[in-house]
């Protein structure tokens, strides 16, 4: 039976649900990411047919099979490259890359940095559970140093990547961080990612109940989260804590946690978050903040403007088309040096 095509404004979360069974483990953080994406999409103003989800390989990469959009479950690490081809081929599509820390930081690291460098307008949702889940528990490029895993029985001896640092090192224009246990934060940030013109990277701190359970608990735990997270909002002072009395100050060329009301500190002394600053130095500092000295930065850390690859590509195409005398392949074949051979 042909489906009834709904107007964009009337789409709901239900329109993006499939009746296939979702095969992630019970308690996996991916369920809440799926749910948040499904509730975000109706609010983006994008036609349902224009949404494409692309993934690589790994637990998170099963995502396209669970959402009612065009979907492409591709190769390990290659989602960003496939998404680049889709978006350049048809810039009208809204392209979402679903990837994990192994998929995008290890085997797909090259494609990850290059899509960001080009600033192709796709949204990359990076499910960071700091472990290889689908292959059952080996360390990943984001696993904290010293962690015991199946391939590091004495503890890892590698320095982990910070996805945010890598994004900015690749001249990223949008980086945000969310936690899987906060659907409101996810939806709010996913919407901003969708609106951003350029590559949006959203790192989801995600729990793997089987192989890295509670890996983020120092950040996400109910009892600590208010003191251990700071939700950054563009144009607002950097305040956090259960009592809303802690803040971030920039002093002597470094960030510093201060308490309002102590040592004469007032709200005026705190930094105001500027996500749009083209200079990413401060965004670097914010991305690197970590426990125990600092709270971990959440929300949209960077959202700067820059040129968008596929827009410029199609501008060049349109310009070339308007300027040329060679309108068809036949014109091309007969252009330049040709030789007539007669009797």
């Amino acid at each position: 039976m042909a489906e009834v095509i709904k107007d964009i404004g009337t789409l709901t979360k239900k329109d993006f649900k499939l009746d296939t069974s979702v095969k992630w483990c019970a308690g996996c953080g991916a369920h809440s990411v799926l749910s948040s994406i499904q509730s975000t999409l109706p609010e983006t103003g994008i036609k349902k047919e224009d949404v494409v989800t692309v993934s690589g390989i790994g637990c998170s990469s099963r995502f396209p099979y669970y959402i009612d959009t065009y979907g492409f479950h591709s190769l390990h690490g290659r989602a960003s490259a496939i998404a680049s081809g889709i978006k350049v081929a048809n810039p009208n599509l809204s392209v979402w890359v679903m990837t994990g820390d192994g998929d995008s930081m290890a085997i797909g690291g090259n494609h990850f940095i290059h899509i960001i460098r080009r600033n192709i307008n796709v949204n990359i949702i990076l499910f960071n559970n700091k472990i290889y889940g689908l292959t059952k528990g080996q360390y990943s490029p984001t696993t904290p140093k010293g962690s015991i895993t199946k391939t590091s029985p004495e503890g890892t001896i590698e320095n982990p990547f910070q996805p945010g640092e890598l994004t900015m090192g690749a001249q990223g224009t949008f980086f945000a961080r969310v936690v899987d246990s906060d659907p409101k934060m996810m939806k709010d940030v996913f919407l901003q990612a969708a609106e951003h013109k350029g590559t949006s990277v959203v790192e989801v701190l995600l729990n793997c109940v089987i192989f890295a359970n509670e890996v983020h608990k120092d950040i996400t735990g109910k009892d600590v989260r208010e003191d251990h997270q700071i939700l950054l909002k563009h144009g607002e002072p950097m305040i956090f804590g259960k009592e809303r009395n802690k803040g971030i100050r920039y002093s002597c060329n470094r960030l510093e946690v201060v308490t309002i009301g102590e040592n004469g500190i007032t709200e005026e002394d705190l930094m105001v978050h500027d996500a749009t600053n083209p200079d990413d130095s401060m965004h670097y500092n914010l991305v690197r903040m970590g426990l125990p000295e600092y709270p971990v930065a959440m929300g949209v850390i960077r959202a700067a403007e820059s040129t968008v690859f596929e827009s410029m590509m199609h501008e060049q195409v349109n310009h070339a088309r308007a300027e040329t005398k060679i309108k068809t392949v036949n014109d091309l074949l007969h252009s330049g040096n040709t030789f007539r051979i007669d009797d």
Binding site: E49, D50, V52, Y65, Y70, G71, H73, S74, N90, N92
Partner: peptide, 11 residues
């Protein structure tokens, strides 16, 4: 992708 009523998933 972009065509109405033909959403599908490959991989």
């Amino acid at each position: 992708p972009g065509q109405e009523g033909l959403r599908h998933r490959i991989g």
